[in-house]
């Protein structure tokens, strides 16, 4: 594996919330607890898990869009987690994000051309004279005709808007893009277009992706490595091969088992292991291993002891008492 582009160390994000009719009770949402991993230059690392598992929070915290409660995000030898907005500004050029909902991430009052051109001018990546050509090239990159530059977001379809959002992220000439559920809101046939586009752009510009998604089939298709998260912690992390062919954590196994297959014959005979119950509230996460309340193989120590982040070899990490031994 090549060198690490980003190193995330013990990242933690807690949101204080007020409860009760008058906000009299204070509580803390444990959105992200003690997460450490590296993102290698040029790879696609996916984070999967169910809602509330902290995968989006991880993306936001890495980009310092949500200030982490504690922990480090090391980029080019510096801890950018402590940077203020002003020091972040030049770094934001390198680290970009594409959001889930293409309907709300574009300013409705700006044309496509203005939206794509704005970061170019702001970061002084081109002169005003060069701008139209630059915009045309970026729109071409994402498969849009140059005439789209004159249009407003409300005149575009969802897939077209997502292309614009990608063009905008590319405008800064970034090295790293967080794709935060970037294809989840799109229709199946459009999803495939955007996935192919992301793969093409990665090859063309040598991009590194942090791909946040809940659709395991898509993740399996696009990723080099996969991290499985549950309630703010990593359950498992490994190459796509390791995680999909040899899942170790019982949660990963259950997750895989819950994914339906587009094959009616196989579905009819398939033995599924269906988790019972719901994900516990991140306001009051279970002690010990956070999965123990739903885990089919939970043992006594799972209730009290937090499992260690354990390397099972070749970079296949897992946090589970049952498989650590």
């Amino acid at each position: 594996m090549s060198t690490a582009l980003l190193r995330i160390e013990n990242l933690r994000k807690h949101f204080p919330v007020r409860l009760g009719a008058f906000g009299e009770k204070q509580a803390v949402v444990h959105a992200l607890d003690d997460v450490s991993f590296e993102i290698a230059e040029g790879e696609t690392l996916s984070l999967v898990g169910e809602s509330g598992c902290g995968k989006s929070t991880t993306g936001f915290a890495i980009l310092n869009l949500h200030k982490p409660t504690s922990g480090r995000v090391v980029y080019k030898g510096e801890d950018i987690a402590v940077f203020d907005e002003k020091r972040m500004r030049p770094i934001r050029r390198d680290l970009q994000i594409v959001f889930q909902d293409p309907y709300s991430t574009l300013n409705p009052r700006m044309t496509v051309g203005e939206a794509v051109g704005e970061p170019i001018l702001f970061h002084k990546l081109a002169t005003r004279a060069e701008l139209p050509g630059r915009i045309e090239r970026l729109l071409g990159d994402v498969g849009l005709n140059a005439r789209f530059a004159q249009r407003y977001p409300h005149e575009l379809s969802g897939g077209q808007r997502q292309r614009v959002a990608i063009a905008r992220a590319l405008a800064c000439e970034p090295r790293f893009i967080v794709c935060d559920e970037a294809i989840s809101a799109l229709d199946v046939s459009i999803q495939a277009q955007i996935i192919n586009l992301l793969v093409d752009l990665q090859a063309k510009y040598g991009l590194t992706y942090l791909f946040i998604a809940h659709d395991l089939a898509v993740v399996r298709h696009i990723s080099d490595r996969v991290g499985v998260m549950y309630l703010g912690r990593f359950a498992e992390l490994g190459t796509r091969q390791q995680v999909f062919s040899n899942p170790l954590h019982p949660y990963t196994k259950a997750l895989m088992s819950a994914v339906p297959e587009a094959d009616p014959v196989a579905e009819r005979t398939r033995q599924r292991q269906i988790l019972t119950g719901d994900v516990p509230s991140p306001l009051d996460p279970p002690s010990g291993c956070r999965f123990h309340t739903r885990c089919p193989i939970a043992m006594e120590q799972c209730r009290s002891v937090v499992p260690e982040w354990h390397d099972r070899g070749a970079g296949h990490f897992v946090a589970c008492h049952a498989v650590a031994g």
């Binding site: 996935i195 192919n196 793969v199 089939a217 399996r220 298709h221």
Partner: peptide, 17 residues
């Protein structure tokens, strides 16, 4: 156009333009 959980690792998805 749907990625499969079982099949081979296709390089590209066949999208509908």
């Amino acid at each position: 156009s749907i990625p499969r959980m079982d099949g081979e690792d296709a390089e590209r998805l066949n999208s509908i333009g």
